[in-house]
């Protein structure tokens, strides 16, 4: 588990990370979402004891990273995949880390094999492609087989197959009870990878909730119903606890009850349905809506201000279309 309390980082007069308080739980994949420059990497560097917080604390499994007895066996991290010495082979790049971390040498060959890098183990990493660098970085993180894993933009440069593999790996690790903390500036990526998201913009925490909850809470998540007897059905559904709005001719948009209940209600009243389709809001749409709410509800001094949230939402969506 990763826990921060009032975590703040100032570079001169620039506030890179502003009073972040959150917990990253084991057993799920937690996404760390924000536009480039929002403070994600700075936060991760502080988790790993590389940068000193200006204020606040951060602990991993209850301890400050620098106090961990065998850090790489407790926390695995991928920060910048390009941070390798180009003149050193992949095998030696992992060997020196294993030696420093008290990890046996055979594990180097294991992680190279896991990442499909065995054939290039003896090659200098300077000649590696972006995707190979990324895989080598993931190999480093997995060296100590740690219960806590941090990945900063892990899918950058991976091919679609590699991306699928990494997502499956995260899921499997989470299922094993590990803590998985993955940053991305791509909302669409988080939607497919994460169970829970932390959204930051300009160093401030904007949202901290399960992905499912964000999309469910969205008014845009609804069940679309087409029926020639829509007028008859609507009051029945309202009686069953739904909010119903009418769309085009014969169309109902239903929230508050799920498709099963709608179908059964229709059947027991002998009403014909032409379409019954649950529509889930995309994380992106849900997030836009959420930030609209945040603008209304968080009008106090500590909360992110209107400009920050709108800016973050705009940048996150423009990243996607770019």
């Amino acid at each position: 588990m990763i826990k921060t309390q009032g975590l703040t980082k100032k570079y001169g007069s620039t506030l890179a990370v502003d009073q972040l308080t959150f917990e990253v739980q084991p057993g799920i994949v937690t996404g760390f979402l924000g536009p480039n420059g929002a403070g994600k990497s700075t936060t991760m560097r502080m988790v790993l004891g590389l940068d000193n917080p200006t204020e606040g604390t951060v602990t991993v499994n209850g301890k400050s990273y620098r106090d961990l007895a065998a850090p790489m066996q407790e926390v695995g991290a991928l920060l910048e995949a390009s941070a390798v010495h180009g003149g050193r082979s992949a095998w030696y790049h992992l060997l020196w880390q294993a030696q420093a971390a008290g990890i046996p040498k055979h594990r180097v060959d294991d992680v190279l094999e896991m990442l499909g890098l065995s054939e290039v183990a003896g090659k200098k990493v300077g000649g590696f492609s972006l995707g190979m660098h990324q895989r080598l970085g993931i190999a480093s993180a997995l060296l100590g087989d740690p219960p806590v894993l941090l990945f900063d933009e892990p899918v950058n440069g991976l091919d679609p197959e590699g991306i699928r593999w990494v997502r499956a790996l995260f899921k499997r690790f989470a299922d094993e009870g590990r803590t998985i903390f993955v940053s991305s500036h791509l909302m669409s990526e988080m939607e497919q990878t994460a169970d829970h998201v932390l959204v930051i913009g300009r160093g401030k925490l904007i949202a901290d909730m399960p992905v499912a909850e964000i999309t469910q809470r969205s008014a845009q998540s609804h069940v679309k119903v087409l029926s020639p007897a829509a007028d008859q059905l609507a009051p029945l559904l309202v009686a069953a606890g739904a909010d119903v709005s009418t769309g085009a001719r014969n169309e109902l948009m239903v929230t508050g009850i799920d498709a099963t209940v709608i179908g059964e209600t229709a059947a027991s009243n002998g009403i014909v349905l032409h379409e019954l389709s649950p529509r889930r809001a995309s994380l992106e749409a849900a997030f836009m809506e959420l930030t609209q709410d945040a603008v209304e509800y968080r009008a106090d001094g500590n909360a992110p201000n209107l400009t920050d949230i709108q800016e973050t939402a705009r940048e996150l969506t423009s990243e996607r279309s770019a």
Binding site: A100, G102, D110, M114, D145, E161
Partner: peptide
């Protein structure tokens, strides 16, 4: 990319100054 198989990390120990020297 092959499927991931993590096996128990036998032989791992707490690193000391000797580990850093070797590294």
């Amino acid at each position: 990319v092959t499927s991931a198989q993590s096996r128990p990390l036998g032989g791992a120990r707490q690193p000391g100054f000797g580990s850093v020297l070797a590294s």
